[in-house]
Design a protein around this nucleic acid. Structure first.
Lengths: 212, 212
DNA sequence: GGTTCCCGCGAACATCCGTTCGGAAGCCGC
DNA sequence: GCGGCTTCCGAACGGATGTTCGCGGGAACC
């Protein structure tokens, strides 16, 4: 439906690479030079065509007022999630209090917004050790959690088990008075305990296993 | 480490919201108006401060030549990884041939460059089913693989087991004539087989477990 | 008081940059 | 041929925009 002339395709490619490199759009004369075009009016003409065909959006009278559109031009945004520490057996996780939230972050993990979509105040923890291997969380993984105190049945939550002095990450179910903590690996046995023994420290949002 | 004056914080917030809205950076006078500042030189002064402190990068003499930097002054790029299909028990994975590589991708998964760093031709597969639960790969996970035919001992590889008609993801070790495939979960038993029964289809790079 | 530094103000300047206009070459269908 | 359409060219206009300079207020310090 959209026949693109070679010149228009060339300009579109240049737009993508320029934005990739600079993080801001090129000026008309940047495009002119980058594509070897002899006149700015040619650039303007073809930009109008690209706008008609729905590949870009232009803000008139504004320098560099070009916005890439379309499925391939869609912009994936990055969220910098505060890395608050490590999660390991035998230690409570450093849940942030609302007043001093990201201020004490030692680092930030940049992830695409899909990883935390919709959730607010998400924080990250690096997993140390293999204590949560039954929950499909390996040493070196990074988990993203939402700081909540309560959860619904079936939620994956990070819970502090008081009697064991251990934090783990399991699905939680309330069953007539007691708590069932179900590992993600269904071949493993669930933990049964009482409500006053567990303390919910966060809800699992997502996780990544970085390249080694 | 870097105390930000209220004015500088205000400008930084404005920068973020402006770019969020327009996809291109504001001009000095946009900032001036948006922050209620009476002179462009004040904006310039504070932008210099923000650059010194590593929050932005400026291209001098260039309109809207402002680039937002993330934590630690680094810039995170996004890589669009082609999603070539699913990986499930009983099916070989759709390894790309070099000639028709990304052309048949049904979709693309945007991830931060850390997830594929350095590797080329990385492709993504969505995991269906729990057949690889012993390798800490859950239903719904997305794994990123590098298309290789050979691997070193200890590499995590996706292998096609001919006798089982199954693909799995394990660490590979060659032990005097036979092959040991070690699950990531050390509580699980390894698979022993012969070299001619396994076909390496890719090397594991990283994986993500998206939010539900 | 004097000095220094941070921060803000206003104006002016030179350039950057989007826009516009006249013209022309090539192509297609009638 | 002829009209219409697309594409390209060169130049000029005017507004947009980054930069610079002098000045001043206020706080901290000696």
């Amino acid at each position: 439906m959209t026949p693109l002339s070679p010149r228009q395709q060339q300009i579109l490619d240049f737009l993508r690479s320029f934005i990739e490199e600079h993080d801001y759009p090129p000026s008309i004369r940047d495009i002119q030079e980058g594509c070897g075009i002899s006149s700015t009016s040619v650039v303007d003409y073809n930009l109008r065509k690209l706008e008609e065909k729905g590949f870009i959006r232009r803000d008139r009278e504004i320098s560099r007022g070009i916005e890439l559109l379309g499925a391939r031009g869609r912009r994936t945004r990055i969220v910098e999630v505060p890395l608050l520490g490590t999660i390991a057996a035998g230690q409570p996780i450093p849940v942030p209090s609302s007043d001093r939230w990201a201020s004490e972050a030692e680092d930030y993990v940049p992830v695409t917004e899909e990883m935390v979509r919709g959730r607010s105040n998400v924080f990250a923890l690096k997993v140390r050790g293999k204590s949560m291997i039954d929950d499909l969380i390996d040493d070196g993984d990074i988990v993203f959690l939402e700081p909540v105190r309560h959860a619904d049945d079936g939620d994956r939550v990070a819970v502090w088990l008081k009697d064991r002095g251990e934090v783990t990450l399991k699905r939680i179910y309330r069953e007539n008075g007691r708590i069932r903590l179900q590992p993600a690996n269904s071949a493993m046995e669930p933990i049964y305990t009482t409500a006053d023994n567990v303390e919910i420290q966060g809800r699992f949002i997502s996780s990544i296993r970085p390249s080694e």
